[in-house]
């Protein structure tokens, strides 16, 4: 699998590696997918990178590759900003080859990472018709998670027709941030758009939402999909290629 802009792949890994330290990559002719849960099984990430999004892509037989995302992140940090990236696994090999090329083809770096044997549980996530679908700038969402974490461990997300409200409370007191739906969309990337069938009010652990925001550099916009008594879906699109979707179980009153 070859990417002209290897930085896309580095951003994907950076977006996942805090939530899941290691994961099984499923490779087929259609592309690369991954599904993994965090160690407490409260959050899940689902990654899709379609073959047509790569500069070139070939997969002669389906493979499951157990990879340490922490190690891969370290290797990818050695990559130059404009480097291209090729990922290769040879038949019957116990390692993955990560090759980087500088833009003017004067530097070539190769790394081999040992593959791991991982037990992975795969959950079936049905297509869900969510009550609310919110789109907002991903930088804004990151900022809100950071700001709400000052006040508490949990953030309550409430939607109305007018907008969406995030609030948190704790020992210090409480705080809230309300975003109003953008009425005059000039730049789509900066818009806050709320599609609502029913109002929702759901509480989530802000620590996990903050981890999801590590994937924010992938996309200028984030999508949040919510329904009562259903895990939140937080989506960052990978341009022309696929997406990273995070799922998080809501907090409930005991």
């Amino acid at each position: 699998a070859r990417l002209l802009h290897g930085s896309i792949f580095a951003k994907v890994i950076e977006g996942l590696r805090e939530l899941v330290n290691e994961a099984t990559w499923e490779c087929s002719g259609n592309g690369i997918t991954l599904q993994a849960m965090d160690s407490s099984h409260v959050a899940l990430v689902s990654l899709v990178m379609r073959s047509e999004g790569f500069e070139s892509y070939r997969c002669d037989r389906n493979m499951s590759l157990g990879i340490s995302l922490v190690s891969m992140s370290k290797v990818l940090k050695t990559m130059g900003k404009d480097d291209s990236l090729t990922i290769r696994v040879n038949d019957d090999s116990d390692s993955i080859i990560i090759a980087m090329e500088s833009q003017n083809q004067d530097k070539f770096a190769d790394y081999e990472l040992r593959l791991m044997d991982l037990d992975s549980e795969h959950l079936g996530i049905p297509d869900t018709d969510y009550s609310c679908a919110i789109k907002m700038p991903s930088s804004e969402f990151s900022r809100i998670c950071r700001d709400m974490s000052i006040m508490g461990d949990s953030v309550l997300i409430c939607t109305t027709k007018e907008g969406v409200k995030f609030s948190a409370k704790g020992d210090l007191g409480q705080g809230s941030i309300r975003l109003v739906q953008t009425t005059n969309i000039e730049k789509e990337e900066e818009a806050v758009i709320i599609e609502m069938k029913e109002a929702v009010a759901l509480t989530f652990a802000v620590r996990y939402l903050s981890m999801f925001c590590k994937a924010a550099p992938l996309s200028p916009q984030v999508g949040l999909s919510l329904s009562e008594d259903t895990p939140l879906m937080c989506e960052f699109k990978i341009a022309e290629m696929g997406h990273v979707r995070f799922y998080l179980a809501p907090k409930i009153e005991d």
Binding site: M37, S40, H41, V42, A43, L44, E121, H122, L123, G124, I125, P126, S154, T203, A205, T230, P231, Y247, A249, P250, K251, I252, E253, D254
Partner: peptide, 14 residues
């Protein structure tokens, strides 16, 4: 007290 659910309550294993 707030309790965090596991995803298995919502989604089943494939």
């Amino acid at each position: 007290k707030r309790h965090q659910n596991q995803l298995r309550l919502y989604y089943s294993s494939d």
